[in-house]
Simulated assay, not measured.
Amino acid sequence: MTPSARPPDPLTFEVVELIGAVVNRYREEYEEAAGKHGLTGAQARVLRLLSIEAAPMRRIARKLHCEPSNITGIVDRLEARGLVERRPDAGDRRVKLAAVTDEGREVASQLRESLDFAREPLSDLSVEERTVLRDLLRRMLGVD
């Protein structure tokens, strides 16, 4: 058996299972919070991204790992609710950017504030422990 084909040791297996449980709980809470605002989880994720910066559909699709045509439909529905708008890109007027409206920014902020799942358990950790956890997660993801 090659080293890369070895089954994970029990500690690694437990860590992977715990990460999966955290991800599942976060998704469940995110979907619930989105639903309270009449949004799907996908719509909420797009709204969150756009609350950071306006972006073309392709960039949103890349960040969310889906097809641009899916993002177009999501943006259409968000636009119909007045949460986002399309505007020309100042650098290339052929490109349309999806941008959050003031109402969309408020909904995105309310969504962010309602996500207690991660905040509550993290508040039980010291600043040093949260720093170590952040640094380990960044290292695992290859983020500097």
Rank of each mutant, 00 (worst) to 15 (best):
N70F: 13
A5E: 15
G35V: 02
T2Q: 09
L136Q: 13
R138W: 03
R139E: 12
E120A: 10
G73T: 10
A90Y: 13
S126T: 15
A42C: 02
A99D: 11
A42I: 06
L47C: 09
L78Y: 02
G38S: 06
C66K: 11
P7Q: 12
E53N: 10
S51L: 03
L11T: 12
D9R: 11
G82R: 07
V95W: 03
V107L: 05
V46T: 11
D124H: 15
L50R: 00
A108M: 06
R62G: 08
P68N: 06
H65S: 14
G73V: 04
D144Y: 05
T40W: 04
V46K: 00
R58M: 06
I74Q: 01
I60A: 03
H65V: 14
A42G: 07
V22D: 01
R134A: 12
D76W: 11
L141T: 05
S4M: 14
E53H: 12
L133Y: 09
V100M: 02
L64Q: 02
A34Y: 02
L39D: 01
R81F: 03
V95S: 05
N70M: 09
K96I: 00
A33K: 01
C66T: 15
L133R: 05
L39F: 07
R105C: 03
F117S: 03
Q110D: 14
D116F: 08
V75W: 07
T131L: 09
V132R: 12
V107A: 04
L115S: 01
D144E: 15
P10Q: 07
V15Q: 05
P8C: 02
R81M: 12
R93G: 10
R119M: 04
L133T: 14
M140Q: 10
A90E: 15
E120I: 13
E85D: 09
V143M: 11
A44L: 03
H37D: 03
Y30R: 09
L78D: 03
E17C: 08
R62D: 14
F117Y: 15
L97Y: 06
R48S: 14
K63L: 15
A90T: 10
L136N: 06
L83N: 02
T72D: 08
R138H: 06
A118D: 04
Q110N: 11
